[in-house]
Amino acid sequence: MTNNNLEDNIKTIFLDTFPNMKENEFDLDKRQEEYENWDSFAHLNLITMAESKFGINLSIDDATSIISARNLLDRVKSHT
């Protein structure tokens, strides 16, 4: 999977997990606290979506270290 493809997939995961977020509001470097509703359950949904989409398993340490879309992208890259 190319970097662009991977980024597109991460973007899709974020847009799916935060259905109220508009496409132009997505930013790879936007941080957790800048999202209106990125709580612990939304976090779990993000991780689950990423695991399903890429067929990977993220450890608790991996999962808790993710605070932006770029973090998730990096974690996915390291597993694929």
Binding site: I13, D16, T17, P19, D39, F41, A42, L44, N45, T48, M49, S52, K53
Partner: peptide, 14 residues
């Protein structure tokens, strides 16, 4: 699986 998850996110509490 992602389609099912995305449907769940839209239709269930988190």
């Amino acid at each position: 699986k992602t389609e099912i998850l995305s449907f769940c996110i839209r239709n269930l509490e988190r």
